[in-house]
Design a binder for these strands. Structure first.
Length: 572
RNA sequence: UGCCCGGUCGUCCAACGGUAGGACAACUGACUCUGGCUCAGUCGAUGAGGGUUCGAAUCCUUCCCGGGCAACCA
């Protein structure tokens, strides 16, 4: 599974495992007997949005580390801000994690499970003289906090007695005060060079319904007061999170040191995943959804797990991608091509090849008998002999790809043009003699002749053709809607210049309502992925496809060196 | 600009004082009943200066560049 991380020495053939800095740390901790050699990780999402590929990186990392070091892995919802959170998100997160193959066994926890314990620890801090109830309002708190360059000054309530703070906190808890009237703050250092240490808030009053605790609480702990302690309660040994929490680490450690917690977890940060041609922040993804730039969180263009799944990505391809990109501490942006490679590479080995004409052009084989039908034997997967063959009906009237014929074609155009011969895959050689145009000057029909000697696509006399085209018998074709997806954004860094929405790709979705597909397509199931030859990899749309009206998504294209040639003007 | 973190091929990761390597991308060519795949090959990097050392991407130092931190978000 983790071969992606191994280096093979060219001369000796020895395999050495290049552990990333986190696994190196965990390995060292374990061998030194820290936490009695236990390794326990967790993935701590806030249930306020759908999981995306960046979360997948964290999930694969956290669950992978626990598996590799014989440890355990928890799922814990960081549900300390009821305003944005919802059970819809809890459910989708569990679905997506399970799909990713992460196994938290029976350890599904919630920070809200610990509200009572957290409250007791808050009281403990007050009694120790390390926390106080503060009456400053939001503006005042900001002002008293100072700036990054200027020390803050103490709140007038900083020396409030423990008895008084305890009583006020109790009142806060039971709704005796309005939102914003009081906060509970840790008493640390108002002049600390790290802003997070300037008497951080640990509880705020919020008279909001919580998706799990209902209306039981009128106060909710802040992230910093919940996260480390939750880790400690669960016996987490390595609390792996993203870089933006680096400045929170001293505070994380302060609570662990100053509270009678049962375990001493340690926080390690890594760089979050960025991908070209997309955005990754929950806020922006939410905006795409609410402003209807996409059809939902699971729109196949979204970088969400549900979007990628609907697009056709497999668990294995996403996991492999996560292992390929590595783990480090520097800000980076991975090329979207690497993600595409991960699925293309897998599907090349596993996907059945079908023929599907996306933009149909009628072809009449004028010398083929009317009413005759031949079953042509087609190889299912040239990469896998065990995949066997299937038959596809051939008849006088066919469809080929509109783009496979040109009245006037450059020299390197190997497809059909007047007077030249090409092969129809697994069928016959044909030659184009004539074509019909409508009033608009568009080519509507081709008249071709076939060589009966070339049955099966074999050249009868050793002559070669440059082009091989896919085709579908008109009479037997299944008509379906095919959705072609392209990058959501036209710029590799949509946030770099201008507003990200201005960089949306207007052509990210192209719907082809009249695709003509070989009959065998009716055999596919919702779990199948297949290749439409010369096009790419496809799957059924899990939401919109019905047996009588197929809707098909293109997961990823095949590489297209002809398109590249032509784009560079070298097709001549 | 106070504090913290980080700068290695176009991109991502590795090299942990001892030959800068892999993957993706790009480019050549071969092969091909998918202009796919495969195969062979090419291009291509240690931010800059100084120091330590027999030897520095790695240690020290100065500078430069990028990111994070001043929500009652996480």
């Amino acid at each position: 599974m983790n071969d992606d991380r191994k280096t093979v020495d060219a001369e000796s053939g020895d395999t050495t495992e290049n552990l990333d800095f986190i696994r190196t740390q965990v390995r060292d901790d374990q061998s030194e007997g820290l936490n009695e050699g236990r390794v326990h990780t967790r993935f701590p999402p806030e249930p306020n949005g759908y999981l995306h590929i960046g979360h997948a990186k964290s999930i694969v990392l956290n669950s992978g580390v626990s598996a590799e070091f014989n440890g355990k892995f928890n799922l814990r919802f960081d549900d300390t801000n009821p305003e944005k959170e919802d059970t819809e998100y809890v459910e989708s997160i569990k679905t997506d994690m399970a799909w990713l193959g992460a196994d938290w066994e029976d350890r599904e926890f919630y920070a809200s499970d610990y509200f009572e314990q957290l409250y007791e620890w808050a009281q403990h801090l007050i009694k120790e003289g390390k926390a106080y109830v503060c009456s400053l309002n939001e503006t005042e708190i900001r002002e008293y906090r100072g700036t990054v360059k200027k020390a803050g000054r103490p709140s007038p309530d900083r020396d409030r007695s423990a008895e008084e703070s305890l009583e006020l906190l109790e009142g806060m808890r039971h709704g005796k005060f309005d939102e914003g009237a009081y906060t509970l703050r840790a008493k640390i250092d108002m002049a600390h060079s790290n802003m997070k240490m300037r008497d951080p808030l640990i509880y705020r009053i919020r008279k909001v319904h919580h998706h799990r605790t209902g209306d039981a609480w009128k106060i909710y702990p802040m992230y910093d007061f919940a996260h480390g302690q939750s880790d400690a309660i669960e016996g987490i040994t390595h609390s792996i999170c993203t870089l933006e929490f680096e400045v929170n680490r001293p505070l994380y450690e302060w609570f662990i040191e100053n509270l009678p917690v049962p375990h001493k977890p340690r926080q390690i940060e890594f760089a979050r995943l960025n991908l070209t041609y997309t955005v990754m922040s929950k806020r922006k993804l939410l905006q795409l959804v609410t402003e209807k730039h996409v059809s939902g969180w699971d729109d196949p263009r979204m970088p969400t797990i549900s979007g990628l799944r609907r697009l056709g990505y497999t668990t294995e391809s996403v996991r492999r991608f996560c292992n390929m990109i590595g783990v480090a501490k520097r800000d980076s942006t991975v090329d979207l091509d690497l993600l595409k490679f991960s699925i293309r590479n897998e599907l090349n080995m596993t996907a059945t090849r079908y023929m599907g004409v996306l933009r149909p052009l009628k072809v009449v084989i004028t010398n083929y008998p009317e009413g005759k039908v031949e079953d042509m034997e087609c190889i299912n997967n040239p990469e896998d002999d065990s995949a066997g063959t299937r038959t596809v009906p051939f008849s006088r009237e066919l469809y080929i790809e509109e783009t496979d014929f040109r009245e006037e074609a450059p020299r390197k155009f190997f497809r059909l043009k007047p007077g030249t011969e090409v092969r129809l895959k697994h069928a016959y050689f044909i030659k184009c003699n004539d074509f019909i145009k409508n009033d608009a000057g568009e080519i509507t029909e081709l008249h071709c002749t076939y060589d009966p000697e070339s049955y099966g696509g074999q050249s009868p006399d050793g002559r070669k053709v440059k082009g091989t085209l896919h085709w579908v018998s008109a009479e037997h074709a299944v008509t379906a809607e095919v959705r072609l997806y392209d990058n959501l954004f036209r710029e590799p860094f949509p946030e770099a210049e201008g507003h990200f929405l201005e960089n949306l790709n207007p052509e990210s979705l192209e719907v082809l309502p009249n695709a003509k597909l070989e009959v065998n397509i009716t055999d596919v199931t919702p779990d199948d992925r297949w290749q439409f030859m010369r096009h790419g990899y496809f799957c059924l749309d899990s939401k919109d496809s019905k047996p009588e009206a197929l809707v098909i998504n293109r997961t990823v294209t095949l590489k297209d060196s002809w398109a590249k040639l032509e784009a560079k003007g070298k097709g001549k």
